[in-house]
Amino acid sequence: MALDKSEVEKIAHLARLHISRTEAEGVMSRITDILALIDQMQTVNTDDIEPLAHPLDALQRLRADEVTEVIHYDDLQSLAPEARDGLYLVPKVIE
């Protein structure tokens, strides 16, 4: 399957990636190559096959509902590019 430019733009937007006009052509052709590789899957009939989500044949464990830690929030916030008064700051969010 080949990708067209508008699809590349749509996917880039969904993934929040900026792809410049000059890059778009190259990105498009490489992804098209990769999709060709992927499309080899379509040569096999898998109608009756159950999908395998996980190699482990195990079940989810449950955790006791307990608060088990002290949060060093100042240390955590010191990792942020921009934070003030305990809040992480980002360019204005519009609803």
Binding site: D65, V67, T68, E69, I71, L76, Q77, D85, G86, Y88
Partner: peptide, 28 residues
Amino acid sequence: TESKLFSSAPTQFGAEPNTQANIYDLAL
């Protein structure tokens, strides 16, 4: 619940901002 759905951070309402978010909640 005392703790969050997938992490052991507390769930109290009205706490100071970001004092109830642990490394999981912050998606480190």
